[in-house]
């Protein structure tokens, strides 16, 4: 993660590179896909391995698995209501996938797949399709009344309906952009300050080394901040999904 040729290069960390040699080359299997598989494996491992004893007094792993389960269970039940419990597996999978992806990306040499808008938009598109399908299944044609509030004057329909439709369509976009932008911004900042450390530290002997401690200290603080952001963004994604599910189930 050093500065290449003494210049700032904060964006090359997001480049996709095929892995697994010739096999990965031919099918376009990149480090991003590899990290996704690793994350799915880690989550499955945590849930399976953590709950294998089914202890009444949980150990560390089981406590972690139970805490994440109960956290999202409470969130879904609180936001969507009792009938929202059937959406728990969906929200839980999304939350764990994003959380582990964000956290894994903070390790040195690891890749953050949530820093690619393709990935975050695909996740947001899944959410969008699910909420629309749920609303259509539950409410049928009544779903379209969502785009026109009750009691509004009919003359305003040509004005209100396009605005409501755009507002509805902007949900997956804002969901995707928020996660993507947060992850990119955090990793660019980390890289910029890490480059400062190398540039200053290698420039003026002992004085340079002393000066390099400043950006290094900033970077340490940033890593802590990024752990917070990694959790927060996964949480925001899960809670917005739940809010949209609430809208789909209850249709205001």
């Amino acid at each position: 993660m050093a500065a290449e040729g003494k210049t700032m290069d904060a964006l090359s960390q997001f480049e996709l590179k095929p892995v697994l040699g010739i096999l990965g080359d031919s099918i376009g299997f990149t480090q991003s896909n590899a990290h996704m598989l690793l994350v799915v494996g880690l989550i499955t491992g945590l849930m399976m391995w953590g709950t294998r004893h089914r202890a009444v007094v949980p150990g560390r792993l089981q406590a972690m698995a139970e805490m994440s389960y109960e956290f999202i269970y409470g969130l879904v039940k609180g936001q969507v209501g009792q009938e929202g419990r059937r959406f728990f597996p969906f929200v839980f999978s999304l939350f764990m996938f994003i959380l582990f992806g964000n956290l894994l990306g903070l390790f040195p040499y690891a890749f953050t797949f949530t820093s690619h808008i393709v990935v975050t938009f695909a996740l947001a598109a899944i959410v969008f399709v699910v909420i629309t399908a749920v609303a259509l299944l539950i409410h049928g044609k009544h779903f379209f009344s969502y785009f026109f509030p009750e009691g509004a004057p009919k003359a305003l329909a040509p004005l209100i309906i396009p605005i409501e439709v755009i507002s509805y369509l902007s949900r997956p976009v804002s969901l995707a952009v928020r996660l993507f932008a947060n992850m990119v911004a955090g990793h660019v900042m980390l890289k910029v300050f890490a480059t400062f450390v190398v540039l200053i530290g290698g420039s003026a002997g002992a004085l340079g080394l002393l000066g390099a401690t400043l950006p290094l200290a900033v970077n340490v603080a940033l890593v802590g901040f990024e752990i917070l952001v990694a959790f927060l963004q996964a949480y925001v994604f899960a809670i917005l999904t739940s809010i949209y599910l609430h809208d789909a189930v209850h249709l205001h």
Binding site: I166, S167, L169, S170, V173, S174, V177, R178, A181
Partner: peptide, 12 residues
């Protein structure tokens, strides 16, 4: 969040 909401609606 407010910024993202405005921009995404505008983009759509």
């Amino acid at each position: 969040r407010a910024g993202v909401e405005v921009v995404s609606a505008l983009v759509v």
